[in-house]
Nucleic acid binder design. Sequence first.
DNA 1: ACCCGTCTGGTGCGGGCGTACCAGGTACCA
DNA 2: TGGTACCTGGTACGCCCGCACCAGACGGGT
Lengths: 224, 224
Amino acid sequence: MTGSGTPGRPTTGNVRVLVVDDHQMFATSLAQALQSESDLLVVGQGTSISEARRLVASATPDVVLLDHRLPDGDGVGAIAELHRIRPSAKVVVLTATTSDRLLVAAMEAGAAGFIAKTQRLDDVVGGVRAAAQGESVVSAKLLARLLLRLRRQGGGSGAELTEREREILDLLAKGLSNADIAQELTISVHTVRNHVANLSAKLGAHSKLEVLSIAVREGLVDST
Amino acid sequence: MTGSGTPGRPTTGNVRVLVVDDHQMFATSLAQALQSESDLLVVGQGTSISEARRLVASATPDVVLLDHRLPDGDGVGAIAELHRIRPSAKVVVLTATTSDRLLVAAMEAGAAGFIAKTQRLDDVVGGVRAAAQGESVVSAKLLARLLLRLRRQGGGSGAELTEREREILDLLAKGLSNADIAQELTISVHTVRNHVANLSAKLGAHSKLEVLSIAVREGLVDST
DNA sequence: ACCCGTCTGGTGCGGGCGTACCAGGTACCA
DNA sequence: TGGTACCTGGTACGCCCGCACCAGACGGGT
């Protein structure tokens, strides 16, 4: 925003905010609550990634409050795309499930902030202001947990799943057996078994059941 | 609300509303949004069942907006208790996961309403007003789905889980094996197997994995 | 007293699953 | 050109699981 329309204002012009959450009543409530802050201007709200794409382009927000779980995809996965559409927009991820893995993924994707929904409304307001000024916003508690984990695992938290593994995880979450998955993807049962074994290793699980359990807890799959 | 089309209601007094949701920022946002309605008075907000108990007694609400998933238990399971504390209070269940089973459970527990979080904020406002007047509030879409299912299954949707089964389901959701569960509950593996088989039958699953998948989808377990 | 639902325990069998360990093909990068 | 990561497929072993079917114990309801 340097020089585009609003030249060198010290700090406070109105911060243009876009709210995206699949729970429409939450998006609307949050929008109203933010609107009551004098220095914030809610310029739009949406309930899906596709709406986010459209609104980021048309409503020219400074900060995007983006839910992690959206009906048409993963919010974190859409961050890069939103940045491509509007590079100056800062994205703050809102999430119901606080997972270290998710936090890392969001920050790596270029998120300016990461706030759990269990936090107070004030934290969102503060987070939006901070993000608008180019600061990063992460809950102290989450950050501590993350650092602890990084220290414990020697930075090797890069348990990133491959595309195929994520695909298999999704089918696993539907309750499909190895044979079902093999048929669905037209590959061998052995291959499925290998992928599942790799998933188990990466997630630290010892069975498909535990894989699913962890995946749900960490928000890696759509539970709806 | 938008004032247009609102039928002439008595407006005998302000409706006292209590908001309970584990996502504090949602509870606060919703509370603020409801507060802006002239005929509604938000008398409190909480993030757990224990807080709900306390606030129902001390804040004397007419309508309680209660989230389904709370940190210290199931919101639906707490409805009866809240009624015991304050019989005149109407409970409207808010839920992220729209499941027929959950809807039935909520209505049977004495809920005055059942609203999905994907619905509009106006629906909540209308739901609160309706509940205050003794009406039942259920989304037309949900109701249609429910009726369709009842017709299809001949009313056999009464797949209520026993206390023990729910207990085993929780452990299952943690990724524990049959042997682990047996040890945890100090019962035989055979018994666990029987319970799991009963769970499978009641949920219409064919494996533990599918049981967990369905349970998560229907919000029967804490995914966090 | 009787039935019914629930929790408890058991036997036996077949198949799916977890594990280990292997290797060919492909794509990408240094 | 070689290394690396990923997807693919395989073999083999043993255990756990799903299924069918059984039965005793306990509590509640008619």
